[in-house]
């Protein structure tokens, strides 16, 4: 694997690029004005993936725990920043996202390593962490966004509950439930239909790389279960941390 260079697969990459040329042709013909953006996307994908390919090659070769942790920290930071942007309108959105994603991802990865599902080696942890953190980021964005929309849209109900002597937690409970459900629904649904509608990325990759379908589905089961767990943990943390940004300690709704 370390002996492979990018150039060895260049003919196949160039062949695949033909499909992008086809798409650009459609765009031009239909005046979609997407050609420039497609070009940017293609170049960015080439540069980003080439860099990460070489970087991972180095890290896998070194297999140094400190380097692994550093990579995880970088991944978590980018996810937190992205999710924090999506959570705009929630006070301290980036901080909330960082805490929620770190909590969900760290606990999930810790359990996977602790239960010896995966070893703490670069080759196993980094791709797994990529899936877990990416998935946690999506859940966190969805939950934060819905929590904010619920609180802003249900201000009257929430303040009615507060006026009847509800704590902020009691007042927000039905809305917290809605936010969590909406955040977790995509991963629950895709787990329910996995294999029936599409073969997920990890499984597709393994099969293309020559693994047997039975090996591939076993790994896919582990992946789906870990993503559900990570979604629940991250979603719960995101909902809890974000609703609290809208209340004072005296159970007053603010900033809504």
């Amino acid at each position: 694997m370390t002996g492979t260079t990018l150039l060895s697969e260049l003919p196949r990459i160039l062949a695949a690029l033909f499909l992008v040329v086809l798409a650009a042709g459609v765009s031009r013909w239909q005046h979609l004005d997407l050609e420039k953006q497609m070009l940017v996307a293609v170049v960015r994908a080439f540069i980003q993936l080439t860099l990460i390919g070489y970087a991972l090659n180095l890290i896998f070769a070194a297999d140094n725990p400190a380097a692994i942790l550093l990579i995880l920290a970088v991944m978590t930071s980018i996810a937190s920043y992205t999710s924090g942007k999506r959570g705009e309108g929630t006070p301290h959105a980036t901080r909330v996202a960082a805490l929620a994603i770190t909590f969900g991802a760290a606990l999930t990865l810790g359990l996977l390593v602790g239960l010896r599902v995966f070893t703490f080696s670069a080759q196993q942890i980094i791709p797994i962490a990529g899936m877990v953190i990416g998935n946690s980021m999506n859940v966190c964005s969805l939950v934060m966004r819905r929590m904010k929309d619920e609180i802003k849209g249900r201000q009257l109900e929430i303040e009615t509950a507060l006026a009847l002597g509800a704590t902020r937690q009691q007042a927000v409970r039905p809305h917290l439930k809605t936010a969590l459900q909406s955040g977790m629904m995509p991963i629950v649904d895709s787990t329910k239909t996995v294999g029936l509608i599409q073969l997920p990325g990890a499984m597709t990759g393994m099969i293309l790389a020559g693994a047997s379908p039975l090996e591939a589905v076993q790994l896919q089961m582990i992946v789906m279960y870990m993503l559900i767990g990570a979604a629940a943990l991250t979603g719960l943390a995101a909902a809890w941390l974000s609703y609290r940004q809208f209340f004072t300690a005296s159970h007053q709704l603010v900033a809504a």
């Binding site: 009257l156 109900e157 303040e159 009615t160 507060l162 006026a163 009847l164 002597g165 704590t167 005296s250 159970h251 007053q252």
Partner: peptide
């Protein structure tokens, strides 16, 4: 604050 709100009820213009 919670004891205060149980002692002082409130009815709003818009009913929820």
């Amino acid at each position: 604050v919670l004891a205060l709100r149980r002692r002082v009820g409130m009815v709003f213009q818009q009913v929820a």
